[in-house]
């Protein structure tokens, strides 16, 4: 296992480097420039280009970027001219992560329960109810869901704050809006997976050896059925924790999602790269954890052993 993790860590670094390189050159292919004020004159643009070192050849810029990156320095944003990317990520990530963790916890716990309950009551009313909840979650775009939640709970009934992120009561609506889609995918996947597993021989064995229904479900069925859900979790954790543009902008959460999208729209090169590296590293880490979890949760898979 240790050897496997070491190998994967090396691979992760190589992957990250590849990601940085690709994105570094891809962003330069994007149409437009980082300096977009309609009033910018060519002379001022030249000054700004020199200020950010864009007048140097691209390979030189690339090497310099990597050097700075080794010191953990993402450089200055080009849109928010006196703020560093490190500063912006440091300020916004805690909000996105906080919101993401809440949403994820809600989504996974509710999703798994719904999936399990639906599978165990296959074909009857409870199953149908669970399926409908799941479908509703997947079938309403997040910006509509967010706006509707805000409209009813915030404005019409005045139960919860409309926006901002200043206390626990403020987190409920955005976390719910964010969780909805995930609840749906987790529960549906779990239901399908449970039904898949229930036909397996080991379940029949467990049943026929007289284990209680509860123990069969918990010990054998769920443990095996959860595998596909875990696969799904890797990228899900990464994307949910690093912020979501729509929910954050509807509920005015000062998180990363807005910057991630805006940086691309503004061609803010250093910000795009900083966000990408951060997100990429996070994603690779999540996927690594998922792969290791595979081995832990499913005894049949022993990764790294031939």
């Amino acid at each position: 296992m240790a050897k496997y993790i070491a190998k994967r860590t090396v691979a992760a670094v190589v992957t990250l480097l590849a990601l940085i390189t690709i994105v570094f050159f891809l962003v330069r292919l994007m149409p437009g420039e980082p300096f977009t004020n309609p009033k910018l004159t060519p002379e001022i643009k030249a000054n700004m280009i020199a200020y950010y070192g864009f007048d140097k050849p691209l390979p030189v810029q690339y090497v310099e970027y990597l050097k700075n990156l080794l010191h953990g320095d993402f450089g200055f944003s080009m849109k928010y001219t006196n703020r560093t990317v490190n500063d912006i990520i440091g300020e916004t990530f805690p909000f996105s992560a906080d919101l993401g963790i809440r949403a994820l916890c809600m989504a996974v716990s509710i999703g798994l329960v719904l999936g399990i309950v639906a599978a165990r009551n296959r074909g009857n009313g409870i199953d149908f109810f669970c399926v409908i909840v799941a479908i509703l979650g997947t079938s309403i775009p997040d910006f509509i869901m967010g706006a509707i939640l805000q409209y009813f709970f915030g404005i019409k009934w005045g139960l919860l704050p409309v926006a901002l992120y200043k206390g626990i009561e403020y987190t409920i609506l955005p976390a719910t809006a964010l969780a909805f889609y995930t609840i749906a995918s987790v529960s549906r996947l779990m239901r399908a997976s449970m039904l898949e597993v229930v036909q397996q021989d080991y379940i029949k064995t467990a049943k026929s050896k007289g284990l209680s229904d509860f123990r069969v479900t918990v010990k054998h069925q769920i443990r095996n059925a959860i595998m596909p859900v875990i696969t799904l979790m890797g990228p899900m954790v990464a994307s949910v924790l690093t912020g979501t543009f729509v929910v954050e902008s509807i509920f005015a959460v000062p998180g990363m999602g807005k910057y991630y999208v805006d940086s691309v729209n503004n061609n803010d090169y250093s910000m795009i790269l900083g966000m990408t590296v951060f997100y990429g590293a996070f994603l690779i880490l999540c996927n690594l954890i998922v792969d290791i979890l595979y081995g832990v949760v499913d005894p049949r898979i022993r990764i790294g052993k031939k």
């Binding site: 300020e91 805690p94 909000f95 906080d98 963790i101 809440r102 949403a103 994820l104 916890c105 809600m106 996974v108 716990s109 509710i110 798994l112 992120y165 200043k166 206390g167 626990i168 403020y170 987190t171 409920i172 976390a175 969780a179 918990v218 010990k219 443990r223 959860i226 000062p254 832990v296 949760v297």
Partner: peptide, 28 residues
């Protein structure tokens, strides 16, 4: 261990998502 961890995590998860600890903005 994994199973216990899973069950525990699940229970903790729901609790956290609703109640949770403080929000970053309150302290930062």
């Amino acid at each position: 261990k994994a199973k216990k961890f899973l069950a525990l995590a699940l229970a903790a998860a729901l609790a956290l998502s609703v109640a949770g600890c403080s929000v970053p903005g309150q302290t930062t």
